[in-house]
Amino acid sequence: MSTSTIDEHAAPPAHTHRTWGKAFDDLRRGWQQRELWGHLGWQDIKQRYRRSVLGPIWITLSMAVTAVGLGLLYSQLFPNTQIHNFLPYVTVGFIVWNFISGCVNEGAEVFISNEGLIKFLPAPLSVHVYRLVWRQVLFFLHNLLVWAAMLVIFPPDGETAHWKLTMLMAIPAFAILALNGLWVTFLTGVISTRFRDIPPIIGSVMQLLFFGTPIVWEMSSLSQKIKVTKDVLELNPFLHFVEMLRQPMLGRDIIWHHWVVAGIITVVGWALALLFMRNYRARVSYWV
């Protein structure tokens, strides 16, 4: 009498799940469950600061201390730096970078950390991606309190009506940034679930890219000191997303080529993420 055995770690037949329709359906059904991932994202923040006196206010305080401390420090390293311009510049840079690094670093473990839910809760994979990006949005909103304080203490130069109108461009800029956070989270999450050495590598690379992105330094100052051309510095894709959002948040004139580059990255990134969703979405539950 012969018995058949089933390998619980074997992937399902590829041809039954590799369709574009299933990839888009996962995104659609995940979005329809926004009440679920919206609640889970908020609970993640409450759980992180459970039993603390100030609760989520620590998010704002830690950002304020970091931005002010490093802003004051680096203002002494660059000549002719005006603190009333440099401190808001560094603050907004940190706020934007905090969102980017959160999506990339935590995105690398988005499926690994939700192993139990993926195996036992019949929900679209995109629910976990939406949940993570929503959590980063909540962090971003908390940190906007620091940005608002900077605007009060150091109002932008120029006519008030002009920079207030310019600031409205921060809304579509952040929408583009969040769209990129979604595809980055899914892409790094799938790759890291299959290859577990990827998350620490991503963490190390992000630390390196932090120093290569104009967060605590300005491009004009660095290029003068070490003779690096502006074209070389702009090979860093994170630079364009930081500047695309920082310029309107500081009431500065918009440099549109940052938007063009960010738009191209958005289209290419989503195409790559959808390809991975089509080919590997069904295998994630077997890899975690």
Results as ranks from 00 to 15, higher is better:
Lys46Arg: 15
Trp134Ala: 00
Ile198Asp: 05
His9Ala: 06
Thr229Tyr: 10
Trp97Leu: 03
Ile265Asp: 08
Ala108Trp: 05
Gln76Thr: 12
Gln33Ser: 13
Leu145Lys: 00
Ile226Gly: 10
Arg252Glu: 15
Arg18Met: 06
Gly69His: 02
Val127Glu: 08
His258Pro: 01
Ile191Val: 13
Gly251Asn: 06
Ile254Glu: 12
Phe140Ser: 03
Ala262Asn: 03
Tyr49Pro: 02
Arg48Asn: 04
Gly30Ser: 10
Val261Ile: 15
Asp25Ser: 06
Leu121Trp: 04
Ile95Ser: 01
Leu222Tyr: 08
Val288Phe: 07
Pro248Met: 14
Val268Pro: 05
Leu165Cys: 09
Val242Phe: 07
Leu235Ser: 05
Gln247Trp: 03
Gln76Phe: 11
Lys164Tyr: 14
Asp197Val: 07
Phe140Gln: 03
Leu165His: 14
Phe174Tyr: 07
Asp253Ala: 11
Asp231Ile: 10
Asp44Arg: 08
Trp287Cys: 04
Leu144Thr: 07
Trp20Asn: 02
Gly107Gln: 01
Pro172Ile: 12
Gly203Trp: 04
Arg131Leu: 03
Ile57Phe: 15
Asp197Arg: 00
Ala14Val: 11
Glu159Met: 09
Ala273Pro: 05
Gly269Leu: 08
Thr16Trp: 07
Lys164Ala: 13
Val65Leu: 15
Arg283Gly: 03
Trp147Asp: 08
Ile57Gln: 07
Val190Cys: 00
Arg252Pro: 00
Pro237Gly: 06
Val68Leu: 13
Ala282Ile: 05
Leu235Phe: 15
Lys119Ile: 02
Trp259Pro: 01
Leu168His: 15
Phe140Lys: 02
Leu168Met: 14
Ile153Cys: 08
Arg196Glu: 09
Ile255Val: 15
